[in-house]
Simulated assay, not measured.
Amino acid sequence: MLLHLLGWAIGNGLLLAIIVYVDDPQRTVSLEGIITTWALVLAIDFIVSFSYTLSPRKHKA
């Protein structure tokens, strides 16, 4: 989970740097969409990972 968060932070940092560098909202709207999509993916990953804390998998005998 923490590696996913780190990868998300690095990727979004690079995308934000590109958005600031280009400085044209019409040309970077798709990059903002990518940031939003990956934030949703990270949230789902957190929920799934946290659910294993509440109810861990049963080991096969």
Rank of each mutant, 00 (worst) to 15 (best):
M1P: 02
M1H: 09
L3G: 00
L5I: 14
L5D: 05
L6R: 13
L6E: 05
L6Q: 12
L6G: 04
G7I: 08
G7A: 10
G7P: 01
G7M: 14
G7R: 12
G7N: 13
A9V: 11
I10D: 10
I10C: 12
G11C: 07
N12E: 07
G13S: 13
L14V: 15
L14Y: 08
L14I: 15
L15N: 09
L16Y: 13
Y21V: 01
Y21N: 06
Y21T: 10
D23G: 03
D23A: 14
D23Q: 11
D24E: 12
P25Y: 04
Q26P: 00
R27Y: 05
R27A: 14
R27D: 06
T28M: 02
T28F: 00
T28N: 06
T28G: 05
S30T: 07
L31Y: 13
E32N: 04
E32A: 07
G33T: 03
G33R: 01
I34E: 08
I34F: 09
I35R: 01
I35P: 00
T36R: 06
T36Q: 12
T37K: 03
T37I: 11
T37Q: 03
T37R: 02
W38R: 00
A39N: 03
A39K: 07
L40M: 09
V41R: 03
A43H: 06
I44Y: 11
D45T: 10
F46H: 02
F46T: 08
I47L: 15
V48K: 00
V48G: 02
V48S: 01
V48Q: 01
F50V: 08
F50S: 07
F50R: 09
S51H: 07
Y52T: 09
Y52P: 02
Y52L: 10
Y52R: 10
Y52I: 04
T53C: 03
L54R: 08
L54T: 06
P56V: 09
R57C: 03
R57K: 15
K58F: 02
K58C: 01
K58N: 06
H59N: 12
H59Y: 13
K60D: 12
A61P: 13
